Simulated assay, not measured.
Amino acid sequence: MRNDAKLVLIDKHQVEALLMPDHVVEAVREAFALHSQGEGRVFPVVREPLVTGGVFGIKSGDVQSQALLGFKAAGFWPANRGLGGEPHQATIMLIDPKTGRPVCVIDGNAITTMRTGAAGGLGLTLLARPDSTSLCVFGTGVQARVQVSFALRVLERLSVVRYVTVDGQRDASFEAHFDGRCEVSHSTDRNAAVAESDVVITATPGSGPLFDAQAVRPGTHLNCVGADTKGKRELPDGLLKRVRLFVDDRTQAREIGETQWAPDTACIEIGDLITGRLPANRQPDDITVFDMTGIALQDLTVARLLHERACETGGATSLAWPW
């Protein structure tokens, strides 16, 4: 009955208790596969600046065969730092495609962090050289940490991590986070850090190129996270002309990702590697780039996973939501 309808709420603490990295990886893998197979749709992205200084966006999509429909309202509010809060904010809503009624509202911050890290891990699994031993990461924030964490999970020989900060200063908390898991060192020479690394991860606000194009050696793989809005970038001019480019969604990457700066660059969607539609065919001297803009299907498959688990375990709040 309509008067018996319920709305499930899953807050920050409940999400963090339910999120399991291995399960998130499988959900993200499914999202990319559904996209490749044409079963999962990604709708046009909304991404707009606000007079408050924030950026507000909506990513939405569906999987009609699975009755999966929803969106993530998210963005970046830098002033939150002054309030002692996280500048990235996200809320996910799952909707019943038969009625249009909301089914579940979920705090999306931890989901966004984890699903982006999982996507980065899949990119490394599919594209980085298996014998990679060294990594350079630009940034030391939440996303930089989760990207490095997944890199350590999937690259068995990875043992050296160099990090570069915006202000050129050491970040003791970043080093402590990975203490005992790898050799961590701060680098003040950006180009040298890139040249000496097998894998490069860029996880910054995307304010401009982070290093020179000639610093990238043959055989390097790059996961690029920070360019997710028109005008943002982390890679230098000319680099995309030298690389084999992989994206999560071709249209979205050309609109808001690194690919916006060279939209005519040939690219392959990562889902096509997962489904086997196209081979990675990576050669030892190839420079590969994974332009990670984040697609709605990642959020929806992970949100569905959490919704199901929360209902099974009672790890959520249920409200009467009659109509």
Rank of each mutant, 00 (worst) to 15 (best):
M1N: 08
M1S: 14
R2T: 12
R2Y: 05
R2N: 14
D4N: 06
L7G: 07
H13L: 14
V15E: 11
A17Q: 15
L18I: 05
R29D: 14
R29Q: 12
E30D: 13
F32C: 01
F32V: 03
A33K: 05
S36R: 04
S36Y: 14
G38K: 11
G40I: 03
R41D: 15
F43I: 03
V45Y: 08
V46P: 02
V46T: 13
P49V: 04
P49N: 13
T52D: 15
G53T: 10
D62F: 05
V63F: 03
L68M: 11
L68N: 09
L69G: 05
G70M: 05
F71H: 13
A73P: 03
P78V: 13
N80K: 10
G82F: 09
L83D: 10
E86C: 08
H88M: 11
Q89S: 10
A90P: 03
T91L: 15
I92L: 15
I92E: 10
I95P: 13
D96G: 07
P97F: 09
P97K: 12
P97W: 10
K98N: 13
T99F: 04
T99C: 05
R101V: 12
V105F: 02
I106Q: 07
D107W: 01
G108H: 07
T112M: 04
A118T: 07
G121Q: 04
R129T: 01
P130C: 02
P130Q: 03
S132A: 15
T133Q: 15
L135D: 12
C136H: 01
T140G: 01
T140S: 13
V142S: 07
V142D: 01
Q143V: 12
A144I: 03
V146Y: 00
S149R: 12
S149I: 00
F150N: 00
L152W: 01
E156W: 00
R157D: 14
S159Y: 01
V160D: 13
R170K: 15
R170Y: 01
F178W: 08
G180L: 15
G180S: 09
T188G: 10
A192R: 14
A193C: 12
A195F: 03
E196R: 14
I201E: 03
G206W: 08
L210D: 02
F211H: 02
F211W: 04
Q214N: 12
R217E: 08
T220Q: 06
C224S: 15
G226T: 02
G226S: 03
D228L: 09
T229Y: 13
L235F: 06
G238V: 06
R244L: 03
F246I: 08
F246Q: 12
V247Q: 10
D248K: 11
D249C: 15
R254L: 01
E258A: 01
T259D: 00
P263D: 11
D264P: 00
T265P: 00
T265C: 13
I270G: 02
G271P: 07
L273A: 07
I274C: 08
L278S: 08
Q283F: 10
I287N: 10
T288Q: 06
T288W: 00
M292W: 00
L297A: 10
L297P: 05
D299K: 09
A310F: 06
G315V: 04
G315F: 01
T317I: 12
A320K: 07
W321M: 11
